[in-house]
Amino acid sequence: MRATELLSRPVVDEHGRPLGRVHDLRIARRPEQHGPARGWAVAGLAVGGGRLVHAWGFAERRAAGPWLLRKITARAGRVARYVPAERVLAWGPEVVRVRTGGAELPPLLEVVRP
């Protein structure tokens, strides 16, 4: 599976309700015991919000400005959510299915390093 196939794939909850699209993958270094590779594993997904908000880095607040771009992207940035990999029931091929248990997903900004 290519990472870019996952990007922009629709995300739904266990009842098939849409949660937006995958806009970014959060990756973390794998612990050494998982083989010789110092590679990464997918830790979670960034879901929801606008495509550009993620592409331009505002969804994870990489930038504080300029003021105008921050204003334009502010609302969409707040909508971005984080889905931990453990909650993913199926990664594809058509949709990413996620277990929410009826609860709200955490905002992306809460789990991103400032």
Binding site: T4, E5, L7, S8, R9, R51, A55
Partner: peptide
């Protein structure tokens, strides 16, 4: 990243 799901 735009064109992965453009289809028919």
């Amino acid at each position: 990243m735009t064109t992965t799901h453009m289809g028919a």
